[in-house]
Design a binder for these strands. Structure first.
Lengths: 290, 290
DNA sequence: AGCATCAATCGATAAAACCGATTTGTAAAA
DNA sequence: TTTTACAAATCGGTTTTATCGATTGATGCT
């Protein structure tokens, strides 16, 4: 059992196709086939079912894959630690972020980059659900999102700031002079909301359910800039945290009445995983900008 | 970076001597030297300082070794899981135990072995300190001991039963008719106690300190059967949990007065590590015997 | 039936892990 | 200081194995 074989196995598991996996790994199909077989021989159990010309993962393969991933990850974390030890002249930060936190992220990336121009970024926008999935697969170092209802034990949470939930309107709206608005009043309006999966949408539907109200949802959409365009048209309203529309023109926001109508921005990372020095510095800059 | 190299590295780290490490690994010193060098080249950092003819671990080596161990352990845990998946016809249980729990261990091992004769045992008697050290190095699957003052976050603790602290005397002792005894009275007696490192000794000295008393410790000894022989002579007394001397002949015990004069037997294992099926079954049998 | 696809297998090659012998460098002993 | 002993590094050669391309065999699709 070698790390090489574990890598091969995981790629084959991911694609469930030896030929494609071999291409992806830049080895021949024959090599991959042999190495998987060798691993199976050593483990004395099949990792894949060969059903005709297609393969599926066995129960053993499914159970084993978690450990294989952990084994590789630990080795990589060790490697990463050594790189960091030298300096911040190399490396990559992978950050997941919800659209609402775009502004603070952008500021931080710009400032970080002037100080450490060699560090690469991978920035992934997505729903909380998608980001947490990626975090769990070690595809992201850290994510920035709002607090979740369910907290997971192996995550580390750091609160950043709170932001009120607001009704977002076109600037020239009938409601433009209101200082605040109730959920009941909102339930009379035609709404365009972020798609399910966005934590904001979950939060809103929970809030309405608690008040035994039903929002009029005319549009669900999974792209926030487009959502804002729709709102600017004046035909619909939406509900977002105030932070989301900071620096946006042509729209205004009205705080929603009621306690607990605020959300807390969070940094989420995996507890037991070594935190890259570059990530630490990045987060320090982020916090200093608040 | 391959698991093979990580294993070589860890053995070299352990022995801090390439020649001995190579022997222990059944490879030549030249191979070990080359493989370590190759690993260092890949990691672009030295893992060992070569000071003359002797080697020491660098800071990088020390930091990296934890990840190397984790990487290997995760791979091994995956392997173990697959073995367990098949059956309980193979495998090994490594148990650490303090002498006090010898009786319950023995019963469990006997019963387990009649059901699963293929499973091997490695049984290590030692002080709590020694056992916890071994548990942390993945040399033991589980340990049986009394509760510690300090609990560690990455351990899982399962309470088994409580046992009173007792003064142990030769059966034909001047104290034989006493139903209980105070710490103050004990402080007048000549004691033989288990060596430092035994959790019982720690517990006793704490108890005396709280009562501002000083025990008369005539003998410290790191072997419990011998300790009991000394007590049987009638020249000394000792303090042990009642469980420890269950089924021992020629000695009697007198409960010690005062609250908190009991200890709780514990199963301790590492939280995040996969628990072997055989270990689970073993512990189930152990609990059923209580 | 014929074709396309994919994993397994075969034989050959290139890479690498490995070994024994030797060298180099240091520390301890004389 | 010189000698001796020891331990890691290096060298050249051998063995092992990872890899490849080509082929085979089995399956699903048209």
């Amino acid at each position: 059992m070698e790390l090489r074989q574990l890598k091969y196995f995981l790629k084959a598991k991911e694609l469930l196709n030896f030929t494609e996996a071999a291409n992806s790994l830049n080895i021949s199909q024959s090599t991959l086939s042999q190495q998987i077989k060798q691993l199976e021989d050593e483990l004395q159990i099949s990792l894949f079912n060969r059903i005709g010309k297609r393969i599926t993962l066995t129960e053993a393969g499914a159970l084993f894959s978690g450990f294989a991933l952990q084994s590789i990850s630990k080795a990589n974390e060790g490697f990463q630690l050594l790189k960091d030890l030298n300096n911040l002249n190399t490396g990559k930060i992978a950050i997941g972020v919800t659209y609402a936190l775009r502004d603070i992220l952008t500021q931080t990336v710009i400032e970080f980059n002037t100080k450490y121009p060699e560090i690469e970024f991978e920035i992934v926008f997505g729903t909380s659900k998608e980001l947490i999935e990626k975090l769990n697969h070690f595809e992201l170092d850290v994510i920035l999102t709002f607090e979740e209802i369910i907290t997971e034990n192996h995550f580390k949470y750091q609160a950043l700031f709170t932001s009120p939930m607001t009704l977002v309107t076109a600037t020239e709206s009938a409601l433009k002079n209101k200082k605040s608005i109730s959920l009941k009043d909102i339930s009379k309006l035609s709404l365009a909301l972020p798609a399910k999966g966005y934590s904001t949408t979950q939060f809103i539907s929970d809030a309405f359910a608690k008040s035994k109200l039903h929002p009029k949802v005319a549009i669900e959409i999974n792209d926030i800039p487009t959502l804002l365009e729709l709102v600017k048209s004046g035909n619909w309203y939406t509900i977002l945290t105030q932070t989301t529309i900071k620096n946006e023109k042509g729209i205004s926001c009205i705080p929603i009445e009621g306690k607990n109508m605020t959300r807390t921005a969070m940094i989420i990372s995996i507890k037991e995983v070594y935190e890259k020095k570059a990530v630490k510095v990045f987060l320090d800059i982020l916090k200093s900008l608040l």
